[in-house]
């Protein structure tokens, strides 16, 4: 029962390493370094990276930016709640707010064009989860995240909230339409 007793050799750090262990440590260390290298590699050669561009903001300031975009680019409204559908020009800055319990407004984007998507919360923390693609971002009040997205598939996409935000959390949805 030696794991629960003091090591027989008092100078245990001089005990030789077993061959099986030495080989496994070498293999495991190599694999660890490969996994480590994959992340910087993907920053250079991969296409799915977060810019980490972010700003401090407030719900008031961010709400004004969202409203200004809605005022200029709304093309129609949807549902009984008259949610505006905004079609901003390709390459522009697009603002999307999470609030209890809605993503505001809806967006209509062009396939193959890039947009600078700004995200923030008007109240508590929310989770931007774009389905069925499964792109997930944490949305935090007082912080404005910027991510440049290039939709390369068209259709109707749903934003689910996947950060628990109170009793209406499971009804918090939004839409992004991507048109050809």
């Amino acid at each position: 029962m030696s794991s629960i007793m003091p090591p027989h050799q008092k100078i245990w750090w001089k005990q030789p390493i077993d061959r099986v262990e030495a080989m496994w440590i070498a293999i495991a260390l190599l694999w660890s370094l490969i996994m480590f290298a994959m992340m910087p590699f993907w920053h250079v050669y991969g296409k799915q990276n977060l810019s980490n561009e972010a700003y401090r903001t407030t719900p008031e300031i961010f709400g004004q930016k969202v409203q200004a975009m809605i005022d200029r680019y709304t093309v129609r409204t949807e549902t009984d709640q008259q949610i505006p559908v905004v079609r901003p020009p390709a390459g522009s800055d697009v603002y999307l707010a999470g609030r209890l319990w809605q993503w505001w407004p809806m967006l209509e984007l062009e396939k193959g064009k890039s947009y600078r998507l700004h995200l923030s919360s008007m109240d508590w923390q929310h989770g931007f989860s774009l389905q069925p693609l499964n792109i997930n971002l944490q949305i935090i009040p007082n912080y404005e995240t910027v991510v440049t997205i290039t939709p390369d598939t068209s259709g109707e996409f749903t934003i689910v909230c996947n950060e628990y935000c109170g009793i209406g959390h499971h009804s918090m949805l939004g839409k992004i339409y991507v048109v050809e």
Partner: peptide, 22 residues
């Protein structure tokens, strides 16, 4: 992997205006 959210009461989004079907 199929996108289902954690900490979520209703993956069917019953009764919501927009709705989404996994």
């Amino acid at each position: 992997t199929l996108g289902v959210s954690r900490r979520h009461w209703d993956m069917a989004f019953t009764g919501t205006a927009l709705g989404y079907e996994y």
